[in-house]
Design a protein around this nucleic acid. Sequence first.
DNA 1: CGGCTTTGACCGGCGC
DNA 2: GCGCCGGTCAAAGCCG
Length: 391
Amino acid sequence: MSSKRERIMHIDLALETADDEVRALEEAEDGGDREEEEEEKEEGEVAISNEDKEANKHQEENQTEEKEQSYEKTTAEDVIKDELCVLQAEMERMKEENRMLEEAIDRTMKDYYDLQIKFADIQQEDQPKEHQVFLSLGRQSSGEIKQAKVADRGSGLADDEELCLSLSLHTHVDPHQRDDAREEKGKGLKSWAAGELTTITSQSINPATRKTRVSVRARCQGPPMNDGCQWRKYGQKVAKGNPCPRAYYRCTVAPGCPVRKQVQRCLEDMSILVTTYEGTHNHPLPVGATAMASTTAASANSLSSSPLSYLNPYLANPSPQLSTMRSFTSSAGYSGIFGGRQQLDILGPHHQATSSAAGGGSWISTGHGVWNGEDEKSLAEQVGVIASTQR
DNA sequence: CGGCTTTGACCGGCGC
DNA sequence: GCGCCGGTCAAAGCCG
């Protein structure tokens, strides 16, 4: 009896629910047996009648059944215990597996960073001494410019000579993704900025007029997408060589804002919408445009930012990547295009690739700009950038 | 009625 | 000088 209770107590610590039931049953058994035994003692001193003998027979049968039930309950407890052990073993195995996966991730990340550093070293070694820098990501095709020319500022260029810096990052868009993007078109600002587009941004600056031109190629089959700014159409013209009419828009967010934009479909691919922004906003951008600027910059990662952000010196608190890109695409002596805030020495004899690890990510710097290698994949997937500084 | 689009006219730059 | 072309203007019409 006492051993039974001890066992019950032990089970109580492990399996409360099962134990409650077992204990209730055991106590019921014990109580029943005791009463029956006492009755038997009393009756043993008295002459036993035939009826009593029959009653004893029934009692013996009942005791046998109860013993069988008790045995079954013990077996059930053992099964539960076994299951518990199996589950605990399974949990241990999963923990071990989890630990191994974590180690694998750590190793992969370490290899990745090592490769980034090696890549930067190789790039530095291969850096040509002439004033031409070539960077490319992804597939190359003849139709896509993938050349970066850096003219030496110190080489005594005449004013009418071309200053040119261009960088392109080629996109590889999965056809399925592209189809998905088309289906998603027109779902608003976020989806526009979130990468449904293949964008190529080109910049040109006229030193004489200090006018900024930013061209954005967006894959969009619907009407021109809302970029957050308010535009008023003031003209439309069919340009030579392209049957698609070119539409002219003027920024109407603030009176007198000189920013204009031209929208035209690409002849080669009618699904591509070429939007060219020109000028510098003389007002803070609306919330939507600012959000658009930041989201575009985020989606395009460090090498691309919204054309609106290019054109607006009031864009508050740009991300480090954004300011980096501004710097990258700006040039010393032509800082006026970004409201005069950005100054950068993109030219000069000291351009070289350097790399450093910052914040867990590795940054590759050409000396003119910084490329966050961590973002390489999404960047290559989403953005092609051609930034040119020319007269 | 105000704001926007449409559309033909106009203007200036550039090449021949 | 002339013609072409890209960009802009402004009147007319549309729409909410």
